[in-house]
Design a protein around this nucleic acid. Structure first.
Lengths: 195, 195
DNA sequence: TTGATAACTGAACGCTCGTTCAAATCAAAC
DNA sequence: GTTTGATTTGAACGAGCGTTCAGTTATCAA
């Protein structure tokens, strides 16, 4: 008689994704083999195909899951009423969220090239939705006269680049706490938009 | 009788590097094969080894050459006397230099993981030298009371991330000219450091 | 204990990789 | 036309790739 749904597979499946995330972030999608992922999980390569259609799907699923989680978490984030308080909420949220999952962030930005055209389009659309959130805040701020942004689109991309850059240098246990880091970034964002 | 030094090789050599740069930027180091690079040049893979020791050296040489050029160009850039005018010179220089060579910039930031430890250390040192240039400007600005940067190191990395992000969205022939782009970025940089 | 199914193994398949190198071709000088 | 060195070809080598699947093992309920 069949076992109940999910038994061993509910352990191995997440392990496959964790191993893939870690190895893709460390070495890059194309440089990591399915055999290496399997070895990290403790199975043979053939077993991976019980949990992912193929290597490309594995990457795509990781990237899509990250973007979905980012958008959902932002949607749930308490925001203020004014554009400026929403901008502050965005900056602090972005820093916190990105520092909490460095591997997923890294993959989300570095591995776009390794996605097939169809998968790339899907992930790109999610990225644009997230960028759109900040862009809407900036437009509202402009309308409220609270900020200055000669080109809102450019400002959006520049701020996201600056905020996302936190992952390239931040080390846990370094000189600055996460809150101090968020404070400084917020000050810079506020200054950058003339608020 | 032997041909004089440098004849056909002075054509093929640069072509190998150009093809490698373009393909590495487009697809990533690990995803591009020596056969593909050779095909783009119009030779067979075996011919590449007349111009590069191996695949790893090809990447390293491209990245090192880019960093050397960046540092040399910055050293030659006219700067002002005050920290603020040097900061403006840096911001405008960074935008211009990075927009002029998108493939090299892309590789310089994206392919660090694919460098061997020794090569990584060498390129990382060059990156730190460039970051050090901005950091020195910010420290001088702080000392002159011209800017505010609670943590100069963080501010350095944040500004470089913001400026380098220009390559992720800028399209030649888009809505904004390069000068307009540089203007906006400079305004944001100035605002970010409270000047 | 038995039988059924889930989960995994291990090897095969066709393919491609980076690199090497003997042979071939090209081109300049005489 | 010949000689010589530069440059390239083309195939081989050993290794590894992603993926498949028949067979095996583990697990569970009856």
């Amino acid at each position: 008689m069949a076992r109940k749904t999910g038994s061993h597979s509910e352990i191995t499946g997440p392990k496959v994704r964790e191993a893939a995330l870690s190895l893709f972030a460390q070495h890059g999608f194309a440089a990591v083999s399915m055999r290496q992922i399997a070895a990290k999980v403790g199975v043979q390569a053939g077993a991976l195909y019980l949990y992912t259609k193929d290597k490309q799907s594995l990457l795509y699923d990781l990237m899509q899951a990250h973007m979905d989680e980012l958008l959902a978490a932002w949607a749930d984030e308490p925001k203020g009423d004014s554009a400026l308080s929403r901008l502050e909420a965005f900056a602090r949220f972005h820093i916190r969220f990105h520092l909490e999952r460095p591997d997923a962030v890294f993959i989300a930005y570095m591995e776009l090239r390794n996605l097939s055209d169809e998968n790339f389009a899907a992930v790109e659309a999610l990225r644009r939705r997230y960028e759109g959130e900040l862009e809407a805040i900036l437009r509202a701020g402009q309308a409220e006269g609270a900020i200055t942004a000669p080109d809102v689109r450019l400002t959006t991309m520049a701020l996201i680049a600056m905020l996302t850059g936190v992952n390239t240098w931040y080390r846990e246990g370094g000189r600055l706490s996460r809150d101090a880091v968020a404070d400084i970034y917020w000050d810079m964002v506020r200054g950058a938009v003339g608020a």
